[in-house]
């Protein structure tokens, strides 16, 4: 039997070159005996080849024919969906992309393949600055939905959402999806790693509205995450001497309410999300104590007592 690569190459060439959709009967005849003779085995072989081409990113289009071949399926490959358009990249631009990959995704096989397609080559040194990009399997399809302007459906926070995606945003080590939540009728930000299960792309188009800038989607202060439409509470936290300098550096000196004897400080910290606030306070262990509000203070005490098992 002929090498499978040969049959796949011939099939792809035929389907790319044809001016009209071809039936399986015609395809088998053109490929001169590369498919089995029996109808059933030929169909099975063709379906396997279709799947193999799809695996490397080539979609075979199909249509139900009319006229003298009415009811039969016709197949072809749309050249524009197969070929990479000429992006007009200059050699220095391809090299810059190579360096960017070396700085952020060294050893990425996917990145190497992408560079080959652009006429470049992977590898090389990325210089003295590097960034680790967290990998999440949903990201490529979310970005594709952003580009195609297709709404996506997914489960998040035990609620089924339909979101018009504006983009994905990496901040402080987490990826977020920013978009318009159709049920809430407002802009919402979702942590991509908290999306439950799969994301479905809807077969429709949306138009983007006015302000869709992703950068404004997250407040600068992580404790104010989820602030859209929620009320902000202000806590007073006492910080021990050991962590005082670091906390003041983190929050800014305008948050210092009092400097205590011995070098500790009392700082005011606005927050929206109690869980985030609790995590921040407990991150300082015995060097931080909640003074106000009383509800936060008692919830921290209850949490700590829960740790005494």
């Amino acid at each position: 039997m002929a090498d499978r690569v040969e049959r796949l190459t011939n099939l792809l060439a035929l389907l790319l070159e044809t001016r009209e959709p071809l039936t399986l009967h015609v395809i088998a005849a053109e490929l001169g005996g590369q498919y089995p003779a029996s109808e059933q085995a030929r169909r099975a072989g063709f379906e396997r080849d279709k799947a193999a081409l799809r695996e490397i990113g080539i979609e075979i289009s199909s249509v139900t024919l009319s006229g003298d071949r009415a009811g039969e399926m016709g197949y072809w490959v749309e050249r524009s969906s197969y070929e990479l358009p000429d992006l007009g990249l200059e050699p220095d631009e391809v090299r810059a992309l190579q360096v960017a990959l070396a700085m952020t995704r060294p050893d990425s096989a996917v990145g190497e393949e992408a560079l080959w397609k652009l006429g470049g080559v992977a590898g090389g040194v990325g210089g003295p600055v590097r960034m680790h990009l967290p990998e999440l399997k949903l990201l490529p399809m979310l970005r594709a939905a952003v580009a195609a302007r297709r709404p996506v459906g997914f489960e998040y926070g035990e609620v089924d959402r339909v979101v018009e995606p504006w983009g994905v945003l990496l901040r402080d080590g987490f990826w977020y999806l920013v978009g318009f939540d159709r049920h809430r009728k407002a802009r919402r930000t979702f942590r991509v790693d908290r999306i439950v299960g799969d994301v479905v792309e809807l077969e429709e188009h949306f138009e983007r509205g006015g302000d869709t800038d992703l950068r404004s989607a997250l407040p600068d202060d992580p404790l104010l995450l989820g602030a859209e439409g929620a009320t902000t509470t202000e806590a007073v936290i006492r910080i021990g001497v050991r962590r005082a300098a670091g906390v003041v550096r983190e929050l800014g000196s305008e948050r210092v309410r009092a400097v205590l004897d011995g070098g500790g400080v009392e700082v005011t910290v606005p927050y929206v999300n109690e869980a985030a606030m609790r995590s921040w306070v407990l991150g300082h262990l015995e060097d931080a104590e909640v003074i106000e509000p009383a509800e936060l203070r008692s919830s921290i005490v209850a949490w700590l007592e829960g740790c005494l098992r």
Partner: peptide, 20 residues
């Protein structure tokens, strides 16, 4: 012409570039 960038490759390039 080379094959189009698939979704995963496209994301890889854009994310790496934006990060850099």
């Amino acid at each position: 012409r080379p094959l189009r960038l698939n979704r995963v490759e496209a994301f890889e390039l854009l994310a790496a570039g934006r990060a850099a």
